[in-house]
Amino acid sequence: MTEAQHPLDHLLRADRLPHIWCPGCGIGIAMRCLVLALEELGRPLDRVVVVSGIGCSARVAGYVRLDGFHTTHGRAIPFATGLKLANPDLTVIVFSGDGDLAAIGGNHLIHAARRNLDLTVICVNNFIYGMTGGQFGPTTPLAARSTTTPYGNFEPPFNLPALVAASGAVYVARWTVFHVRRLIAAFQEAIAKKGFSFVEVLSPCPTGYLRRNKLGEALEMMRYFKAQSEIRHGADPAEAGIEMGGKLILGKFVDIERPTYQERMRKQLAMFFIEPYAEKVREEIEAEEVES
C-alpha cells in the first residue's frame, strides 16, 4: 500500500489543500459529497460548472477540479443563469451559503425558482455568517447569539425549503453533513432533475455559531444531527422550520414535474419561428415518445 494520494484528489485542486475551513467545519464534507455524486453520476466532468457567491461555502468553487466561478456576493444564481442559457449543454451547480443565497442573493433565489431554470442549488446552512466572524443571518434561529445579536436573535429566520418550494422549485431536499450517503443521493437526484432543484445542507460552524452559543465543538453538533433528525420524505416543507436545539425535519420534500424555463421558452417561440425552436421542440417530442 503506497498510495499517498487521496482517492478523490483527482477531482480536487489538491495543490490547494489543506483548505481554509476551520477544524470541524462541515463544508468539506458537503464538497466531498458533491464530487462523489458527480463521479458516480458519470456526467462528463468537463461540462460541469460550479458557481458560487461569497462566503465560506463559496470557496468550494475553487477547490473542486471543475470549471469554477467564484462570483460576487449573492450573485451566483444570476451568473449561473447566464452560463446555462448561453450554453444549455452545461451542467450548472450553484454551491454557496445561506447568507449568500438567502439574504443578499434572496431575490435571485426566488426568481430562479419561479422561472424553473435548469440549475442545481446547493445551500450550506450553518446558521451564521462565518467568513466575517459570526454575525446573524437569514437562517439564524431565534434567540441564538451572534456578534450582531449579542442579546439573542429576535428576527425570525427563513425556512429555506418552504421558501424555494413556494417559489416553484421542482426538487427540494434537506440533509445534514452527518447524513453523507443520503446527501450524495440527494445531490445526484438534484443534478439529474430537470429544472430548479435545491438541497439545503445543515452544517456546523464551530467558530462563528457553536462557540458563541456554548453549543460545544463541531462534534457536538454532529451528534445533535444524528440524534435529533427525523427523516420525513414528502413532508410539507412549511412544517420543517428549525428551532434552536429542536428536532430537525430532513428528507426529500418536493419532487415534482413542471416545464423548465428553457422548455417553455422553446415551446412559446416555436409558434413564431421555424428554426431553431420548432426543430428543438420536435426533437423533444420525439424523444419523449421514444421513452414512453
Binding site: L8, L17, G24, I27, G28, I29, R32, L36, V180, R181
Partner: peptide
C-alpha cells in the same frame, strides 16, 4: 468508509 465520508479535510481514506 464512514471515516472517509465524514472527514471534512480529505485526510483519511480506506482502501
Amino acid at each position: 468508509k464512514m471515516c472517509e465520508l465524514l472527514c471534512p479535510e480529505f485526510a483519511i481514506y480506506v482502501v
